[in-house]
Amino acid sequence: MKLIFGYLAGLLFGLGLAIGGMTDPHRVQGFLDVFGNWDPTLIFVMGGAVITTFIGYRLVFRRQGPLFAETFIVPARRDIDTRLLIGAAVFGIGWGLSGYCPGPAFASISGITWPLVALLLSMVVGWWLARRV
């Protein structure tokens, strides 16, 4: 059941990204173009995600435990280190240049393009390197 609900959650997430227009890299780049042809769509998608997460976490943590696991898995680290800062900078640069972050990139696989292939390969290499460092 855990696997089935994981796939359903991923499908819902991808569908939300597609409906919100986040699988279009030009929309994301338009959001980052604050001095040009600015597109505020991303703010509304992010706002909807933040509100949903805020409410969802409060509802979930009222439970004694998760439905399909022994315990909740909550990140314990709260420090800001060099790896985090470098990773965030690389992520931001890649996101700004390509117009994709990982979720929309994978949700866009059905409309594969060469820039998307380059981004996906770069993400895989980045994940591999991050595990080695």
Rank of each mutant, 00 (worst) to 15 (best):
L8A: 15
L8V: 14
A9E: 00
A9P: 07
G10K: 11
L11A: 15
L11N: 06
F13Y: 11
G14Q: 04
G14F: 11
G14R: 04
G14I: 02
L15S: 12
L15G: 15
L15Q: 08
G16C: 07
L17F: 12
L17R: 00
L17W: 13
A18C: 07
A18I: 11
A18S: 13
I19G: 00
I19W: 15
G20H: 05
G20K: 00
G20W: 10
G21E: 08
G21Q: 09
G21Y: 10
G21W: 06
G21C: 09
M22G: 05
M22R: 00
M22Q: 12
M22L: 15
M22S: 06
T23C: 14
P25L: 07
P25S: 04
H26C: 07
H26E: 14
R27K: 12
R27D: 02
R27Y: 03
V28C: 03
V28P: 05
Q29I: 08
Q29W: 09
Q29G: 02
Q29L: 08
G30T: 06
G30E: 05
G30R: 06
G30K: 03
G30V: 04
F31L: 05
F31N: 01
F31S: 02
F31T: 01
L32G: 01
L32Q: 00
L32F: 14
L32T: 01
V34W: 14
V34A: 10
V34M: 11
V34G: 00
G36L: 03
G36Q: 05
N37G: 09
W38F: 15
D39G: 01
D39H: 14
D39S: 08
P40L: 06
